[in-house]
Amino acid sequence: ARPAKTADSAGTVIVISDNERAAHLFQRYLDDYRVLVAADEREVQQLASTEPVHAAIFVARSQQEAGDRLVKGVAGLADVPLFCCSLAGGETAGDELGVASYLVKPVLRERFLAALDRVGPHVRDLLVIDDEPEVIRLLTRMIKGEARRYRVHSAYDGEEAWQFLQTSRPDVVIMDLMMPRLNGYQLLERMRADPTLRDIPVIVITAKGLDGEVISASLAGVTRGKGLSIGELMRYLRAGLEALQLPHSAPAQPAAPSG
């Protein structure tokens, strides 16, 4: 079992998953709870025997498995509220977009920072664009945790980013593709058509692959035809955890828009 890095006073949540990326995802998004990770029911029972557990999240490979687990339950957690969800997705290279890197959510810190390093040592000013404040908060925290001093600007859709680019020229743009008003594809087209912006390196971090496959999540009992985004899934989980009135530490606030 892998321990969490959260406050001792926070409510304890066990994430049941043998997927390392999923484990990191939940620990990052639910950082105001004490999140423990168990790969299987044996590890669950070990953790539950040593300390109180307030809630559990079972991460399935499909909606069917999530639904089955919701009925079956988890050994050792008979009296603990159980959330069941599924994560699914794939990754496709973004060469045809002409971007520096193409990453699919959920992205690990190491992969994101490696993509940033590949842009070059000159990078200081960054523009992060995503319509989900949770994503901007996570990326900003990853960036500011580095020894190199970066200046991070944020925008919550393509139109806001375009207005920022009219007066500023960041060293790199980090963007989602699926956004309201002006999406990432349209913003890239505008940048490529502008001689002053076309050479700015772009890192795409998105929940949609170029082949059209949606990287989606579902929460058993709360879903829809096309699935939930990662941000929506985490909001549902957080609402459920807060309904249990678990103790938790104060979460960091999303970065305010700048520029």
Rank of each mutant, 00 (worst) to 15 (best):
L228W: 04
D171Q: 05
V202Y: 02
A55E: 13
L177V: 05
H54R: 11
G221M: 11
G227F: 02
E159N: 07
E232V: 09
V152Y: 04
H248A: 08
T50L: 03
R190Q: 13
H248L: 06
H248I: 01
S258H: 05
A38K: 08
Q45V: 09
Q253R: 14
L30S: 04
S258L: 08
Q163A: 11
V37L: 06
S229L: 10
Q46I: 03
F164P: 01
A39P: 01
K226P: 00
L165C: 05
R21C: 00
L219I: 06
T92W: 00
S168E: 13
D130P: 10
V173E: 01
S9D: 14
L177R: 04
Y156S: 08
G94F: 03
P52Y: 06
R118Q: 12
A39S: 14
V35F: 07
S49N: 13
Q64T: 07
V104C: 08
Y185Q: 04
L113M: 11
M175L: 13
Y102G: 03
V107C: 09
T140Q: 13
V104H: 12
N19H: 09
V15L: 10
R224P: 02
E20W: 07
L113Y: 00
Y102M: 15
V173T: 01
V71Y: 00
V37A: 06
V173C: 03
S218H: 10
V172I: 08
F164H: 13
L108D: 09
G94Q: 05
T196K: 15
T167R: 14
R238H: 10
G145T: 10
R118W: 09
T223D: 12
S49Q: 14
A55L: 09
A48M: 07
Q186R: 14
P52T: 07
Q186S: 10
L187I: 01
T6F: 09
R137A: 14
G76P: 11
V222N: 09
A39K: 15
R137G: 08
A55V: 13
G120D: 07
L182H: 02
H153P: 01
P247Q: 09
R2N: 10
Q166V: 01
D211H: 02
L244M: 11
G231E: 14
R111Q: 12
L108K: 10
G67W: 03
A193L: 13
S9C: 14
T223F: 07
T6K: 15
Y156C: 03
G209M: 13
R181F: 06
P52G: 08
S17W: 09
R42Y: 05
V80W: 03
T92N: 04
G73S: 06
P180M: 11
V172T: 10
Y156R: 10
L113C: 03
E65Q: 12
Q64D: 02
L113T: 02
A193T: 08
I136M: 12
H248D: 00
Q166R: 15
L233M: 15
